[in-house]
Amino acid sequence: MLQLNPILTSPDASSAKSVVMAVGGAEDKVHGRQILTTFCQRSGGLDATIGVIPSASREPDAMGRLYHDIFMEIGVKAVEVLLVSDRSHGENPDLLERLERCSGVFMSGGDQLRLSSLLDETPLLEKLRHQVWQGQSVLAGTSAGAAVMGERMIASGGSNEPPNRSLVDMSTGLGFLPDVIVDQHFHNRNRLARLISAISAYPEKLGVGIDEDTCALFEADGHLKVLGRGAVTIVDPRDVSYTSYPHVDLTDPVSIYNLRVHILSDGDCYNLLTHRALHKTV
């Protein structure tokens, strides 16, 4: 018999607030489950109904079952696995009705291009956006599920090179966080140069690189809070005075002056309105 996690409680004011959680992948699924438990708590705790969208995975049925069991073990009220393996499924009235019951929605890892192509411009995505932006559902995504959060997303890219125009391939994301570009498995796979390359192409965006077993938690009040074992890297191009990006060949290194970078760890915050990093309280 499944046991309720004693960390979970009934919903309160803090758990009812709108929030988006972008997870860098490889989150702890076995031991402390800090990030997944926080997601369940913010989604309503013991009263939460969690929707799982495993569409990014090559094995969505198995991925759906995995997270179904994890969230039930954590102690939520119910889990709905929302299988979307064809764009037509995004119009299914039964699926839309099941989504409406979800106080939290979790998008699994896999291939972000697959996930975006299945969900983009579907009624399911429009309904999910409405629920998230209205504070009716908490949204979390891990790995590919985090990469799709921005209006522009990193589809693929390389590493072990200086920033350059060919280092990153960009595509259209799902737009939950329109002003940011998210990258994941960040320091684990040496992805700073590709995030800088992406920000060089879209200097009006803020770069957010998230390590494995680490979460960038975006609050409705404009604060980003870091949760987990790794770091979140903020790449802020607001004060860039010069970049050679428009003028160099595809594989030439890009010059960029006065780029601001913050490295934040568990408990640190970043004010997305004032662009100031805030030290965690000890």
Rank of each mutant, 00 (worst) to 15 (best):
L2H: 11
L2E: 06
L4R: 11
L8T: 03
S10H: 14
P11Y: 10
D12H: 14
V23M: 05
E27I: 02
L36F: 02
F39H: 04
C40P: 00
R42M: 03
A48Y: 02
I50F: 04
I53D: 02
P54G: 08
S57Q: 07
S57A: 15
E59P: 00
A62I: 13
Y67G: 06
H68G: 10
H68N: 15
D69E: 14
F71S: 00
I74V: 12
G75S: 09
V76I: 14
V76F: 07
K77P: 02
K77H: 14
V79E: 04
E80F: 01
V81P: 01
S85H: 08
D86K: 11
H89K: 09
E91D: 12
D94R: 13
L95Y: 06
L95N: 01
L99A: 05
L99T: 03
L99I: 04
V105P: 05
V105K: 01
D111G: 13
L118P: 05
L118M: 15
D120T: 11
E126A: 15
E126V: 10
E126T: 14
L128S: 09
H130I: 10
V132E: 03
V132T: 10
Q136A: 15
A147T: 02
E151V: 03
M153S: 09
I154V: 15
G157D: 13
S159T: 14
P162L: 09
V168H: 03
D169Y: 11
G173S: 08
G175Y: 08
V180M: 13
H185K: 12
F186V: 04
H187T: 13
N188C: 05
N188D: 07
I196N: 06
S200H: 13
Y202M: 12
E204G: 12
L206K: 00
L206C: 04
A216Q: 02
A220W: 05
A220C: 10
A220L: 07
I234R: 01
P237M: 06
P237G: 06
P237Q: 05
D239T: 05
D239Y: 08
Y242H: 15
T243R: 07
S244W: 10
N258P: 01
H262W: 12
G267Y: 05
Y270D: 01
L272C: 08
T274Y: 06
H275I: 04
A277K: 05
K280I: 09
V282C: 14
